[in-house]
């Protein structure tokens, strides 16, 4: 059955369909965000002020850069410059890890201040704040999980390119993995203002 038809347009369409389902997955949480923002606007504002704007902005820049490197790697693949592809994918993985490190620092900081779900400090806080941080941890946590999966996917692509199993003639795997990575970026583009910029 190895002679299965090659239909890149179809595989890509399938990938887009998968992205739609990912959008809806986060969409459920956006419904929650919208409803609770409406209910607890003032608490959301005071919660947003407690987040680290610098780290948040840094992470936004990092993710945009990583999206750029992925887009370029596909362009490089089209031009058949393998070394450049590997360099760009490596950079992407680097940016991804950097993002997760930042996230770790940020969460760790919050934990030290007793801000985490179910903590004694949160028990005493206003309900609106509990909800804000509940959403913050759930949404950025789910996003970080996706980014981790994305890292693995891009990592696998790196080795497939390295061993020439992804090449200039057949790089649909890289193309689709890139789409996934960009989607993670798009979701962060919305998460960033919703949490960090509600000042």
């Amino acid at each position: 059955m190895s002679e299965h038809h090659v239909d890149n347009t179809g595989s890509k369409f399938g990938m887009w369909l998968f992205l739609y389902s990912e959008l809806m997955l986060f969409g459920g949480l956006f419904v929650l965000y919208a409803a609770y923002y409406y209910q607890y606007t003032t608490f959301f504002i005071s919660g947003g002020k407690q987040l680290d704007l610098f780290l948040g902005t840094m992470n936004t820049v990092i993710l945009l850069l990583s999206s750029f490197t992925v887009a370029c790697s596909i362009e490089a693949m089209r031009k058949n410059s393998k070394k450049l592809v590997l360099l760009l994918l490596g950079l992407t993985v680097f940016f991804g890890i950097l993002f997760l490190c930042n996230k770790y620092i940020e969460w760790n900081h919050k934990f030290q201040h007793g801000i985490y779900p179910g903590s004694a400090y949160m028990e005493q806080s206003a309900k609106g704040l509990v909800i804000f941080f509940g959403l913050y941890f759930t949404m950025t946590g789910l996003h970080a999980l996706h980014l981790l999966i994305g890292l693995i996917v891009i990592g696998v692509c790196f080795f497939l390119c390295w061993s020439d199993r992804i090449n200039a003639k057949d790089f649909i795997t890289l193309d689709n993995s890139g789409l996934y990575w960009h989607l993670i970026d798009v979701i962060w583009i919305f998460l960033f203002p919703l949490f960090y910029l509600i000042l």
Partner: peptide, 10 residues
């Protein structure tokens, strides 16, 4: 921003 990513990166 999302539109830019969708149009030109994706």
């Amino acid at each position: 921003k999302a539109a830019f990513v969708l149009l030109f990166f994706m």
